[in-house]
Design a protein around this nucleic acid. Structure first.
Lengths: 131, 131
DNA sequence: AGATATCGGACCAGATTGGTCGGATATTCG
DNA sequence: CGAATATCCGACCAATCTGGTCCGATATCT
């Protein structure tokens, strides 16, 4: 298949929300708004913090804020922060591919990957928030 | 994640091979050549037959042949034949998405999907076989 | 008739992912 | 200072998905 994970989906929803509302917003607040399991969303947001896309504030009025201009956060940034580097081919993701030396489609697929990543990189959270 | 399944990978390898060699070729032959589990490859090829991308020949000298000009078979055709219609978002693939009405990223993601599909549709098996 | 190929479904096991839980730390407020 | 509330972080469980296998049936050529 060729689909983004629910975690990535949640991450995009949250980032769009943060781009549309100013101030620090807690994970639970966003989770309730979109009916996302709160602990799961929290974990997703934590990964975004670790990758420098979000800034977290602990304490009683804590929450999350975008770390930079939403126009400078692309979809790829989010996907890679949550699910790890994008890999079109199975062999790109650790799975010990038996074909390796015989594989005749890896190189062409890499070129396609570059194009796909470009598509994903061309859209920012800002544009997401405007649509 | 954002990766094509091994089955799709196998399918592309097989189609490329068929585009490069003329005549009817058996699943087992291709499987041995690329060290792919034979029964699995057979199943993959069956799906391609059902979708009209391949023509199968039963019997003792049977095997598979491309159903049409490799330049007229795109990567999307193959992926959709093997893994079903491409769905970027989780909600596109039957998973009963709780967000549905609340979901704020579905429409923008659809536009991205169109672009991705276009990228995949722009490359044909013929081009795959030339690289 | 027999050998070899696809066909087609059911079936199993391992990996991945969605989702949960609990303790630790930081921050604000009474 | 202590209680409340938030993030943090890892371990953990359960369900789904996928890679892979098996078996009987059918078709075709020798």
């Amino acid at each position: 298949m060729f689909q983004l994970s629910k975690k990535s989906d949640y991450g995009l929803i949250a980032l769009k929300h943060l781009a549309q509302h100013s101030g620090s917003i807690s994970a639970r607040e966003i989770a309730m708004e979109y009916k996302i399991p709160a602990p799961l969303l929290a974990k997703v947001l934590q990964r975004l913090v670790r990758k420098g896309l979000l800034i977290s504030q602990q304490g009683i009025n804590g929450g999350y804020v975008l770390a930079r201009d939403p126009a400078k956060i692309s979809i790829v940034d989010v996907l890679e922060a949550i699910d790890g580097p994008i890999g079109i081919t199975p062999c790109e993701r650790g799975s010990n591919c038996e074909q390796m030396e015989r594989c005749s489609v890896r190189d062409p697929l890499m070129k396609i990957k570059v194009k796909v990543v470009r598509v994903l990189g061309d859209t920012s959270i800002y544009e997401l928030a405007m649509n």
